[in-house]
Design a binder for these strands. Sequence first.
DNA 1: GAGTCAAATATTATCGATAATCGGTCAATG
DNA 2: CATTGACCGATTATCGATAATATTTGACTC
Lengths: 215, 215
Amino acid sequence: MSLAQPLSRASLSQQIRDRLLSRIMTGALKPGDRLIELKIASEMATSQAPVREALRELEAMGVIETLRNKGARVRVITDEELRQIYDVRAQLEGYASELAALSGTAIKARLTALIRDMKKAARKGDSAAFADYNMEFHRVIVENSGNQVLLGMWETLNVKMRTMVNVARSSRNLQELAESHEPIVDAIVSGDGARAHAVARTHVLDNKPVAASQV
Amino acid sequence: MSLAQPLSRASLSQQIRDRLLSRIMTGALKPGDRLIELKIASEMATSQAPVREALRELEAMGVIETLRNKGARVRVITDEELRQIYDVRAQLEGYASELAALSGTAIKARLTALIRDMKKAARKGDSAAFADYNMEFHRVIVENSGNQVLLGMWETLNVKMRTMVNVARSSRNLQELAESHEPIVDAIVSGDGARAHAVARTHVLDNKPVAASQV
DNA sequence: GAGTCAAATATTATCGATAATCGGTCAATG
DNA sequence: CATTGACCGATTATCGATAATATTTGACTC
């Protein structure tokens, strides 16, 4: 009866959660799509119970929403909410950059390498790779803040953001966008906490999407 | 077969989650205490499945932690983590106060009333009531920021904080603590965003617990 | 008496089946 | 012809039972 495999470390419900999450983040599942428990269960060759547990976790993460007796669907993030996410992110990353500047940890090499990677991806017009490097850049800063709580909050926001598939910019924009990260590195390396805070905050706000319509 | 009651709106697993959460926040369940699924199920006259779902939600909220095949226990928040929570809260509330100041919404009456309530509780030495009013004060500000995302993050931090039962101060401290909220109201009412930001941030940091030991 | 293995126990993880609920269909009714 | 309401298919919500895993206990060896 025992399975031959060493049996992966994560529990079944965690595996299901991760698989669903990646489907959402890659866009295979789009906002509004329904998540039907028994369908997912049979797809993943398991039963309904662990699927439900996975859905509850995703719900708590804010990635899906469930209505009583009506099931779960991928959460639709409104333009307004996305803008609010950018506002909060700006605060968090500003603070993270401040801490990173003050801590004096050497992350210059890492960050400049990521900017280089971004530029390379921009030249190739590979916007998916660009997005990955871009996110990694920001994550490195937040990780190096040394504040685990801050990192956790940032990740939550990040996951929510990623459910909005905002790809496809012109490659000229990408080139400029890559360059716009350089002042952040300078400020962090300089050790000037207040400046690092301001520069990082402004950077995020500069990329905040404009309001779709004036309500 | 149908139940006579209108059947409460929340699903069973949500009811269980809330009941467990309040037990944790009131201190009936302390950090480190185990949560045994079948025991909870029989206590609440239900079966194991919805309990498991509730536990998964609590885990995603960061209130409990589970080890594979070993079950769940109330999460132990270290001194260091609590201090990090205060740091992040200071940022979030600073930003919330800034927004509240700029929005010009009239919350002065509400906030001053809460300060009055705090002082009254302080005189009576009722630290539990004091804590409630205190939290309410801060919540009102964050709610009035108009940023739902910000409110969500603040609530998450708040729940985590509350799992640490930090009661019992001297009543003199409470009196001073109540008064220390007045400059925040002044700054918000004045409409000076930058000042409101700074004052609120400082207020939170002033109450940040000191490091237990110098590592 | 200390160490070690194995049965016994406690608990989690998963399954399959059943009950409850929702949304739509469609015929009977006024 | 609009309305009601009983049925039906799809799906969620819950249960009870079983399998898998960890922990403890206790006898046995040296």
